[in-house]
């Protein structure tokens, strides 16, 4: 189904990139949508059902499986937003078809916004899939819908932008696998997905507060369950701060053509 066509040339260009990205996500759904569904189902079965049933309540009235649902959704949003833009934009660089866009009259912001929109959409689609899977294991009550939505949007925005910066600097496919493997995965696991940082002793508790993913997971958990290890205001400042800085970096890279123009 075609969406209504925008009339401004920049909006037409933005629509074109976003549409192409969405078509790509849907065309290779077994690589873009299915893996997270399978992985998260395993997490729910093993950590939620098997291990979680022995842990019981982690906070008053909150079972362990309920506690890990927000973190697992955020984990999927982070890896999918990041992975989508880094592989798609690097693929365009590698195959040289990024030149189609660089030699066109599109301003840099349209290119950035188009790729980010595509990556965010994948993050949101996967979030919806994981949320739907979680309903087979537990009941979700949306405590603060707007905070939940805003957190998931900001998180996918931050990691889409981070993935874009990675793709611009990457020279080979290994370069886009390094950050997810050696940075994102450890930070996500240590970002309070499976536990509350309040349970950690010093200095690990203090170290955990330097992890930006902790703020995203907890803001999302607050939206879904109404509990958080960090003040909500700080979490939104951290997320917005990263979004602004990464947008500025992404625009500067595109405008100066670093890694893209000789």
């Amino acid at each position: 189904m075609e969406l209504p066509m925008p009339s401004s040339p920049n909006l037409v260009a933005l629509y074109t990139i976003t549409r192409r990205e969405v078509i790509r996500i849907l065309r290779i759904w077994s690589q873009t949508l299915l893996p997270s569904a399978i992985t998260m189902t395993l997490y729910f079965v093993i950590f939620g059902r098997m291990v979680g049933s022995r842990i019981g309540e982690i906070a008053p009235g909150i079972q362990y499986i309920d506690y890990i649902v927000p973190g697992l959704i955020m984990m999927a949003v982070i890896t999918n937003s990041y992975g989508n833009i880094s592989s798609s934009f690097f693929g365009a660089k590698f195959g040289r078809h990024v030149e189609e866009m660089l030699a066109s009259p599109m301003p840099s912001w349209v290119i950035l916004a188009g790729y980010v929109a595509g990556a965010m959409l994948r993050g949101l689609i996967v979030a919806a899939i994981v949320l739907a899977i979680s309903l087979f294991f537990t009941h979700i009550h949306l405590y603060h819908p707007w905070i939940t939505l805003l957190t998931v949007l900001l998180t996918s925005l931050v990691f889409s932008l981070a993935g874009f910066v990675n793709a611009v600097y990457a020279k080979k496919f290994d370069d886009i696998a390094l950050v997810p493997t050696f940075v994102l995965t450890p930070l996500t696991y240590l970002g309070g997905v499976f536990y509350s940082v309040s349970a950690l002793g010093s200095p690990w508790k203090e170290v955990s507060y330097a992890n930006p993913i902790l703020y995203m997971v907890n803001a999302f958990r607050y939206g879904l369950l109404g509990i958080s290890d960090v003040p909500l205001g700080v979490a939104f400042v951290v997320m917005s701060g990263f979004a602004v800085v990464l947008t500025v970096v992404g625009m500067a890279l595109l405008n100066r053509g670093i890694g893209l123009r000789s």
Partner: peptide, 15 residues
């Protein structure tokens, strides 16, 4: 699609 998308980058409507 390659042609239509290329036109899109120039702001030319899909029709």
């Amino acid at each position: 699609d390659i042609c239509v998308n290329a036109a899109g980058f120039y702001g030319i409507p899909r029709t």
